[in-house]
Deep mutational scan, measured.
Amino acid sequence: TFELKGKVGKVVKIAEDHYLVEVEGDKWIAYSDEKLSLGDRVMVVDVDGLKLKAKRIP
Results as ranks from 00 to 15, higher is better:
1 T>R: 15
1 T>S: 15
1 T>L: 14
1 T>F: 15
2 F>N: 15
2 F>T: 15
3 E>T: 02
3 E>W: 09
3 E>P: 15
4 L>P: 15
4 L>H: 03
5 K>N: 15
5 K>A: 14
6 G>P: 01
6 G>Q: 02
6 G>Y: 02
6 G>F: 03
7 K>E: 06
8 V>M: 11
8 V>P: 05
8 V>Q: 11
8 V>L: 09
9 G>I: 06
9 G>F: 05
10 K>R: 13
10 K>H: 11
10 K>F: 12
11 V>E: 00
11 V>H: 00
11 V>D: 00
11 V>M: 02
12 V>R: 04
13 K>V: 10
13 K>I: 09
13 K>G: 10
13 K>C: 10
14 I>W: 07
14 I>D: 08
14 I>N: 05
14 I>E: 11
14 I>M: 10
15 A>L: 14
15 A>S: 12
16 E>K: 13
16 E>P: 12
16 E>N: 12
18 H>R: 07
18 H>S: 10
18 H>V: 11
18 H>D: 10
18 H>I: 11
19 Y>H: 02
19 Y>E: 01
20 L>M: 11
21 V>G: 00
21 V>T: 02
21 V>M: 08
22 E>R: 07
22 E>S: 08
23 V>W: 02
23 V>H: 02
23 V>C: 05
24 E>G: 06
24 E>P: 01
24 E>T: 05
24 E>N: 07
26 D>F: 14
27 K>S: 12
28 W>F: 08
28 W>T: 02
28 W>A: 03
29 I>G: 07
29 I>K: 09
30 A>K: 00
31 Y>N: 11
31 Y>D: 10
31 Y>S: 12
32 S>I: 07
32 S>T: 04
32 S>Y: 01
33 D>P: 07
33 D>F: 06
33 D>Q: 07
34 E>M: 06
34 E>I: 04
35 K>T: 13
36 L>E: 00
36 L>W: 10
37 S>Y: 14
37 S>C: 13
40 D>G: 04
41 R>K: 12
41 R>G: 12
41 R>F: 15
41 R>P: 14
42 V>D: 00
42 V>I: 15
42 V>W: 01
42 V>H: 00
42 V>T: 02
43 M>N: 04
44 V>W: 02
44 V>I: 15
45 V>A: 05
45 V>W: 03
45 V>D: 05
46 D>K: 03
46 D>M: 03
46 D>W: 02
47 V>H: 08
47 V>Y: 07
48 D>N: 09
48 D>R: 04
48 D>E: 12
48 D>Q: 11
49 G>C: 04
49 G>H: 06
49 G>K: 05
50 L>F: 14
50 L>A: 09
50 L>R: 09
50 L>S: 12
51 K>S: 10
51 K>W: 07
52 L>I: 15
52 L>D: 00
54 A>F: 06
55 K>Y: 03
55 K>I: 09
55 K>D: 09
56 R>M: 06
56 R>D: 01
56 R>T: 05
57 I>P: 03
57 I>M: 09
57 I>H: 10
58 P>R: 05
